[in-house]
Design a protein around this nucleic acid. Structure first.
Lengths: 204, 204
DNA sequence: GTATTATCCGAGCTTTAGCTCGCGTTTCAC
DNA sequence: GTGAAACGCGAGCTAAAGCTCGGATAATAC
């Protein structure tokens, strides 16, 4: 399904223009808040005319969707690269890697990743984005937590998505690089996962 | 600091009108999403004229702020009432109570509490609202976790606010009454809190 | 009962976000 | 080099959100 009937950038300069638009939109969304940003702002900030913007995007929502795709793809790629898990990998190490990736991506621009993840809630497109992350997590869990039922895995994956998203988004974004906060998020994730993976969880 | 220079409702009918406006706004915000709701929608849905609405509220943002105040006050009152904790109270019980209160408030209208809590992020007013909840939690922790330093308590309180807010808001709101989801949220909170309160946490 | 204050209303004015369209410019294919 | 396609532009149109104001009604004070 094509994002819209708009023109697809073919030449290098238009691809760069689209890139500038996305970058500016990201900075503005994260900085001013989605409702306060207009397509005119984005165009101006990107040093591009509105007309050009509308050649490639149908509107603000489509820009948001494109950003979500771009960043979740980036997030997924980073995770794939770092999480070469075998059955023997230490959980704590895995959690650290995940937190590293999140923190790094959420830094430039600050808070954007968190905003994007939060803003998936409710929209059709957002559901797809979350589903992709969810799938990846279930794959990960399959390697680690074979004692869990399929249904349990789904719930656990949801939990993980929302713990990390939620924490790194709703307010903790600012403190994500604060070691104390970081340590607590780590403790929370491990506190949740450890009993489950070591089998000491009576719910299993 | 007065919310605005608007008129304060003095008579019973105007207080009821303000009430209707807030109720309608809550339903619409939770149902249609904040950006899609206009003051005209709210007035119409509340069966009130826009003019009347603007006599008591300066605009949409102020209505949101009023809703945040009202619901966090309600949340705080419910928690105070149910969480008569002494040093001997069971943690699991406390967590259950907190989840009960959240779930109940988030039910009518569905998702409103979650939306309100999320939407505090970033705004000045929202910071105040979160600070109030935060303060209450630190009080609670003071009774339970005396071994924590003041700074640690702050971080832990932040974590708790964001775990509950985040989880019950970003996507889990829909499933908040699903027993499986509920059980996982419970497990996550206990997994985080138990080591800390029993002193088996090596970070303390 | 009368003056005063509080309230309520909604047509319509103002502002602004959203968006298009025609034209000039650049790149590409051959 | 030349025609075609891709691109870039921004003044300005459109629709809708935000909001006011003057006048009518209801509550309250005395």
């Amino acid at each position: 399904m094509p994002p819209s009937q708009r023109r697809q950038p073919k030449q290098a300069r238009s691809r760069e223009l689209v890139e500038r638009i996305l970058t500016s939109a990201g900075e503005l969304f994260a900085g001013q808040g989605y409702p306060n940003v207009t397509t005119n702002h984005i165009a101006e900030h990107a040093d591009v005319s509105v007309g050009s913007l509308y050649q490639f995007f149908a509107g603000k929502e489509e820009i948001l969707a494109a950003l979500q795709d771009k960043w979740t793809a980036r997030l997924g790629a980073e995770l794939d690269e770092r999480l070469r898990v075998g059955p023997g990998t230490d959980i704590a190490e895995t959690v650290d890697q995940v937190l590293d990736v999140h923190a790094a991506l959420n830094r430039q621009p600050p808070g954007l990743l968190g905003f994007l993840l939060i803003s998936t809630a409710g929209t059709d497109h957002g559901n797809g984005v979350v589903a992709a992350i969810h799938r990846r997590l279930v794959d990960l869990l399959t390697l680690r937590a074979r004692s869990l039922s399929r249904q349990q895995m789904d719930v656990v994956a949801s939990m993980l998505v929302h713990i990390t998203n939620g924490l790194y988004s709703v307010g903790l974004a600012a403190g994500a690089n604060d070691p104390a906060v970081r340590a607590e998020v780590r403790a929370a994730l491990l506190g949740y996962l450890t009993p489950m993976l070591t089998g000491s969880d009576e719910r299993i």
